[in-house]
Design a protein around this nucleic acid. Structure first.
Lengths: 201, 201
DNA sequence: CCTACCGATCGGTAGG
DNA sequence: CCTACCGATCGGTAGG
């Protein structure tokens, strides 16, 4: 095997491990994944798994990066062509509900789970989760600001408030689906979003 | 020591252990608590801690029961004297925000954290969490139904939808406080609640 | 409620 | 990427 091929093989192995880590994390938590269980389910040795990343924290950070790429693909890429403002905001809401309904992560929203798990544990993992959610909040806020400027949203609800409430709705949909298996949760979310993002009278 | 006194002492020890388990769980998770760390921080032996409960799952179930008693004291008892319907619903909202702002649990809302942690792990712990949240939802729904009947809430938003959105708001306030240290989150929650629970025009 | 102890598993390393 | 191994800690038990 040429160096190029073994590099490719190494990258593929890394990708397989990270993918499995993301899936398991959404069910068992980012801290709940163990190198041993990961290795067994991938038919690898523990040393093979941990050798790729160095330590467990680096593996957790890699899983967060991969999860963010999945969000981009499953939500953002589907609405980025919409015009900034109310139209894109409504499209984001629909893409978000659809993403939750399709169970893109087997244990539900990866970032919501990671946020709840790490909000009391200072460190790089927590910072990565916080950074990702903050960035997403800024994206929502920017479109909400455009919508308010254009008169498409009531100015009494500021951009940050809109972003806050969209996130609230998504969190509750995720909880209802994951904890209670409530298949109607997505439509509850849509109803809440419709009222939040309604045109001024 | 008479049997009565040693029974009292045993009950007190149990209460100390459960209290510590609740506090630690809100930070490290219900699964993250370990019998060894609990024992060390209480100046007890591991066998002394686990002997009270039998196994870790029973300890987790005891922690959930204690957390529910705290919710009752910190939220429900403060509003139960209000007339059923819109008045009590608004009082619940304010008590809920106040409970979150006072950091009653050191790591944030115990049940929200436990729900996120156990929604992918079938068993008695998950069922206890689900039962507690369902019961709370029914309480909210009953007051919302009364409020709609009385014409104090728009009928187009059903009782279950109101309960769903109140929970959504509380979850987002908790996340903003715990993950981002956002002291303004409670007021964001109040603004969202005010709109949700506004009188029909 | 304690001491002493159990097998299993944890994250991680040495060396290839 | 593997085998072999490390000390630490896990939940839990025996016996008092």
């Amino acid at each position: 095997m040429s160096p190029r091929n073994s590099q490719t093989a190494a990258a593929e192995t890394r990708h397989r491990v990270v993918g499995e880590a993301v899936d398991r994390s959404s069910v068992e938590g980012l801290e709940g994944i163990t190198i041993g269980k990961l290795a067994t389910s991938l038919g690898m040795s523990k040393a093979g798994v941990i050798g790729i990343f160095g330590d467990k924290e680096q593996l957790q950070l890699a899983a967060i990066e991969e999860a963010i790429a999945i969000y981009r693909r499953e939500i953002w890429d589907k609405v980025s062509f919409e015009p900034a403002g109310i139209e894109r905001l409504r499209a984001v809401g629909e893409a978000w509900m659809s993403y939750l309904e399709r169970d893109v992560f087997p244990g539900g929203c990866f970032l919501t789970a990671a946020a709840a798990e790490f909000d009391g544990r200072p460190g790089r993992v927590r910072e990565a989760v916080e950074g990702a959610l903050s960035l997403w909040g800024s994206v929502l806020e920017a479109d909400a600001a455009k919508a308010i400027e254009a008169g498409d949203l009531d100015a009494s609800t500021g951009p940050a408030q809109v972003a806050f409430e969209m996130n609230a709705i998504a969190m509750a949909v995720n909880q209802a689906r994951q904890l209670r298996g409530d298949d109607a949760a997505g439509d509850r979310g849509r109803q809440a979003l419709a009222r939040l993002l309604a045109s001024p009278a």
